[in-house]
Simulated scan of single mutants.
Amino acid sequence: MLHRVEGIVIRSMDYGEGNAIITLCTENAGKIGVLVRGAKKVKSRHAALIQPFTLGQYVFFRNNGGLGTLNSGEIINSHHPIREDLIKAAYGSYACELLDRVLHDEETGSFWFRQLSACLNALEEGKEPGVIINLFEMKILQAAGYGPQLDSCIACGRERADDELLLSPRLGGTLCRSCRHNDPPAMEVSPRALKLIRLFAALDLTRLGNVDVKESTREELKKIMRAFMDAQLGLRLKSQNFLDQLDKYNI
């Protein structure tokens, strides 16, 4: 059967001599694997269609599920500027790998596609990559069913002033100081960072405007979201390790 989808390349791997298998995050058909014959050969007409971050229309044959075989395709947005920039490419790769690990094959709904598309667009436009990725991580946590509870104490349920709240990645939300015994390693959080974390929870990436967050707050947000991602999803991603190396050498 012939299928036509709009999708973003989130993974590309060599297969055999000159072929490639791409994984697409699609708007209406979830995550799909497609074999692209001859894509790695010189002057292949499909070479551009297998590049990471590429948004395109893909037409492929597939019978009874499983791997499809590309018939034709057309690029909508190559996101070439992301691939040309080391920092942007690193964050884009992390977003794609994270989505690839969390999204199940053919899981329906356009939410994942819209969030990834908005994330890549924001990176290409030069918005602060760390903040973009933190917001993307929040959307991933929420869509996977692990969105943090941020408006009241997750232990006692009472609403408290912001300066009375801690963050507990293990329990999945804010924790008042009276309930700290439920999670002694709970994190201190500044009012500014807590406000932004709540904004991330409420804001859709497609509505992200200009981002202006001072460096100390960005560092705090990065630590908070990393702690939530590790505690709730526990993924070990190659792209995350590369981002850690960039941080180590202040690139």
Results as ranks from 00 to 15, higher is better:
residue 1 M to Y: 13
residue 3 H to R: 12
residue 6 E to L: 14
residue 8 I to L: 12
residue 11 R to I: 05
residue 12 S to D: 12
residue 12 S to T: 06
residue 14 D to Y: 13
residue 16 G to I: 02
residue 17 E to Q: 14
residue 20 A to G: 01
residue 22 I to K: 07
residue 24 L to M: 00
residue 28 N to V: 09
residue 28 N to L: 14
residue 31 K to E: 10
residue 34 V to S: 01
residue 35 L to Q: 06
residue 37 R to A: 03
residue 38 G to A: 00
residue 38 G to C: 01
residue 40 K to R: 15
residue 41 K to L: 08
residue 41 K to P: 01
residue 43 K to G: 04
residue 45 R to H: 01
residue 46 H to N: 13
residue 48 A to N: 11
residue 52 P to R: 01
residue 55 L to W: 04
residue 61 F to I: 03
residue 64 N to F: 15
residue 66 G to W: 04
residue 69 T to G: 05
residue 69 T to Q: 11
residue 70 L to G: 00
residue 71 N to H: 09
residue 77 N to R: 08
residue 79 H to I: 06
residue 83 R to P: 10
residue 87 I to G: 03
residue 87 I to P: 01
residue 89 A to H: 12
residue 89 A to G: 04
residue 94 Y to S: 07
residue 95 A to E: 02
residue 96 C to K: 01
residue 100 D to M: 07
residue 101 R to N: 07
residue 102 V to L: 13
residue 105 D to G: 03
residue 108 T to C: 08
residue 109 G to Q: 00
residue 109 G to E: 02
residue 109 G to L: 01
residue 110 S to I: 04
residue 110 S to C: 09
residue 113 F to Y: 13
residue 114 R to G: 03
residue 117 S to M: 13
residue 120 L to P: 04
residue 122 A to E: 08
residue 129 P to N: 02
residue 131 V to K: 02
residue 131 V to H: 04
residue 134 N to S: 12
residue 137 E to M: 05
residue 139 K to P: 02
residue 141 L to C: 10
residue 142 Q to V: 13
residue 153 C to P: 08
residue 153 C to F: 09
residue 159 E to D: 06
residue 159 E to Q: 12
residue 160 R to S: 12
residue 161 A to Q: 13
residue 161 A to R: 15
residue 164 E to A: 11
residue 166 L to Q: 02
residue 168 S to T: 08
residue 171 L to Y: 01
residue 172 G to N: 03
residue 177 R to D: 07
residue 179 C to I: 05
residue 179 C to Y: 03
residue 181 H to Q: 15
residue 183 D to Q: 02
residue 188 E to D: 11
residue 188 E to G: 06
residue 189 V to T: 05
residue 189 V to K: 02
residue 190 S to M: 05
residue 190 S to H: 02
residue 194 L to I: 04
residue 194 L to S: 03
residue 195 K to C: 09
residue 197 I to R: 03
residue 205 L to T: 00
residue 206 T to Q: 12
residue 210 N to T: 15
residue 210 N to P: 11
residue 216 S to P: 06
residue 220 E to N: 02
residue 222 K to N: 13
residue 223 K to P: 00
residue 225 M to V: 02
residue 227 A to K: 09
residue 229 M to D: 06
residue 230 D to S: 13
residue 233 L to A: 07
residue 234 G to C: 04
residue 237 L to C: 06
residue 239 S to E: 11
residue 244 D to Y: 07
residue 246 L to G: 03
residue 248 K to T: 14
residue 249 Y to T: 12
